[in-house]
């Protein structure tokens, strides 16, 4: 009796569609830690979106009489030296930080994966030219590159995303190219060619899914480094400007007053750390979920 049961089951499953992502989602749901990470990220994103409506104070609202005060009932996370509510500033800061983190990484991800795959799979001169271009961009001092962009196009938050993304994709492209170089010698790629599949089909069905493991790990490492990069640029006056805030900016101001007002460093730092932890859990979970070999079912 068991045979027809499993048969029906497989029919239904197959009919539901067989995309890698659906399978990955089924496996991811079993990973509690990754789900927790995903939950935290979603929660943070929702808070960031709703900030203008739910923030307890305005982000520019100062209370110079109060000045820097430790956490209290009125100001849960305390206030900074201008008497601005820290919770509000962290909430507003999350909008910038998360946006920079995700969009800039997204830009890096898309350019890097495509560039690396095409270079690695095509090989020969195309590969050589494409990778030398990457080398040249690597050699350009990053700061000069960004300052130039800012000078030419003016200060613009979108430009900041693009600029960071344009630098971060280089490493991604190298990682992916290395993966693809070893993959394309494998027989399943040759089998795909002999099936008559087009180059694009081979790239997106056979190559890219097999590079996902390292790509996802690198992505989860890129997001925090991008957030810190934004802080660095803002600190230099090239990114966003006070009174706007971002986590990176808050942290760098917090460091200056660390000894007198530690909460100005602790809370933005905590916000960043929680995000990074959540991202790492999610990244690990995603990597396992996308690697069909690791599944134990």
């Amino acid at each position: 009796m068991s045979e027809p049961m499993t048969l029906d089951n497989s029919f239904q499953q197959a009919e539901k569609g067989t995309s890698l992502w659906q399978d990955a989602w089924i496996r991811l749901r079993k990973n509690k830690l990754a789900l927790f990470g995903l939950g935290v990220i979603v929660f943070l994103c929702v808070i960031a979106l709703l900030t203008p409506f739910i923030a307890p104070y305005g982000y520019e609202e100062q209370d110079l009489v109060l000045g820097a005060s430790p956490p209290s009932a009125a100001h849960w996370l305390g206030t900074d030296i201008f008497g601005r509510d820290m919770l509000t500033r962290i909430m507003y800061g999350s909008r910038v930080s998360l946006m920079v983190g995700f969009i800039a990484t997204g830009v890096a991800l898309i350019i890097g994966v495509l560039w690396g795959t095409i270079a690695g799979y095509t090989g020969g001169r195309v590969d050589a030219v494409m990778m030398r271009l990457v080398d040249i961009l690597y050699a350009l001092p990053f700061m000069i590159f960004i300052i130039l962009l800012m000078v030419i196009f003016g200060r613009n938050i979108l430009l900041l995303f693009l600029a960071i993304g344009a630098v971060e994709w280089l490493t991604m492209a190298r990682i992916v190219r290395g993966q693809v170089l070893s993959l394309r010698r494998q027989e399943f790629i040759e089998a795909a060619v002999s099936l008559g599949l087009s180059r694009w089909t081979i790239i997106h069905r056979h190559l890219i899914p097999n590079t996902l493991g390292p790509v996802i790990v690198y992505t989860t490492l890129t997001i925090p480094s991008v957030m810190l990069l934004e802080a660095f640029l803002s600190f230099l006056g090239l990114g966003i400007q006070p009174p706007q805030s971002s986590w990176g900016l808050l942290i760098s101001y917090g460091v200056e007053t660390m000894e007198e007002y530690p909460w100005l460093l602790i809370f933005p730092g905590l916000a960043l750390s929680i995000t990074l932890f959540a991202l790492n859990f999610l990244g690990d979970g995603l990597r396992d979920a996308l690697d069909v070999r690791s599944s134990k079912d």
Binding site: L20, F188, E190, R205, P209, D291, V292, R293
Partner: peptide, 13 residues
């Protein structure tokens, strides 16, 4: 192909 471990895409059912 010779090697049934290398000739199948590991991420395809």
């Amino acid at each position: 192909f010779q090697d049934p471990y290398a000739s199948l895409n590991p991420r395809m059912s």
